[in-house]
Computed example of a mutant assay.
Amino acid sequence: MEFTTERLTIRPFKSFDLQDVFKIYSNDETCKYLLHTKWTREIMQESFDKKLKNSSLTKDTGLSLAVVNRKNVIGDLSVWYTGIKDTVEIGYSFSAETSGKGYATEAVSHLVRKLFEEFEVHRIQATLDARNSASQKLCERIGMRKEAHFTQDFWSKGEWTDSIVYGMLVSDLEN
């Protein structure tokens, strides 16, 4: 899957994207609410290789996409099937320097349209750390609805955290 938006190119990762992606995932603030810890130089190649392998979305493999502005990777979109019929989950991370410029909204909103139109998914969901208010606002901006709030349901980085699940159907898209 590859597509462009007004300001972005969204495509599978390429080997030369490693340093840009390392800048995203070596930032403490960016990784604060993610499932993994920040990348170090020791694990960056191994972690990045997983993204390179995820170049197409199938029932068995997830998809990782680079969000490129000009020539720099500024974000990472992930999609995988949940095991529930025609349902996918999305995840996203963006470089701290791009915060507040609308790139995440632009990229994720185009991604969900592509998933509904080209993959004919029935439902898209996002599960996030409840403390991640920026991610909650993004989900709401693109038309997702808050469907669940689970209290202390996930052990992450040495503490129990709350999870929030957002979801949407094709009928939730604003035209």
Rank of each mutant, 00 (worst) to 15 (best):
T151H: 09
H122Y: 13
K85D: 14
E147M: 14
D129R: 04
S78E: 10
K23S: 13
S47M: 14
V68I: 12
M44Q: 15
Y92I: 07
K157G: 06
N54P: 00
L77F: 02
D28F: 01
G100C: 09
C31W: 01
E97V: 03
N27A: 05
E106R: 02
I84K: 14
A148F: 14
E42T: 06
I43R: 12
S56G: 01
V121Q: 10
I43F: 02
K53Y: 07
F48H: 06
R7A: 03
Y103K: 04
F119G: 05
I124E: 13
S55P: 01
Y103M: 08
L111C: 13
T5R: 00
S47R: 15
L77S: 11
W80Y: 13
L111Y: 12
Y92M: 11
E106N: 05
G62T: 01
R7D: 09
V170K: 13
E147G: 12
W160L: 15
I124G: 09
Y166P: 10
Q152V: 01
G158C: 08
L138R: 09
G158E: 04
L35W: 00
I90K: 12
S109Q: 08
H122W: 02
M44K: 15
L35M: 03
D86C: 05
F154H: 11
K85A: 15
A134Y: 01
R7E: 03
M168S: 10
T61S: 15
Y81R: 11
F116G: 10
K71V: 03
V21K: 02
E140R: 11
L18T: 10
V170I: 12
I84M: 11
T82E: 07
I43D: 15
R141S: 15
E106I: 02
L52S: 05
R131V: 00
L111P: 11
V108D: 07
L57V: 08
W155G: 06
E120L: 08
S163P: 00
K32V: 05
F116H: 05
T98D: 00
I43Y: 02
F154A: 05
F22T: 05
E147I: 08
T58L: 04
F48M: 06
L52H: 01
I43P: 01
G62E: 06
G167N: 03
S26R: 07
D17L: 02
R145W: 05
Q136W: 04
H149Q: 14
S55D: 14
G102I: 05
K14I: 10
F154Y: 14
K85N: 10
W160V: 05
E140D: 03
C31E: 04
E147K: 10
I90H: 07
R11W: 02
Q19M: 11
K53I: 06
F116I: 04
I142Y: 05
F154T: 10
M1G: 15
D86W: 00
F150Q: 13
G83I: 04
K51C: 06
I164Q: 14
A107N: 05
D162A: 07
I24G: 09
K146D: 06
W39F: 09
N54A: 13
E46Y: 04
M1Q: 11
L65K: 03
M44R: 15
H149M: 07
L65C: 08
Q136C: 14
T30W: 00
K101E: 03
S64Y: 02
I24Y: 12
K38V: 04
K14Q: 13
D17F: 00
K53W: 01
W160A: 11
T127W: 02
V21N: 04
P12F: 03
V121A: 12
K53F: 08
Y92F: 13
L35V: 01
D172H: 11
K14W: 01
K14P: 01
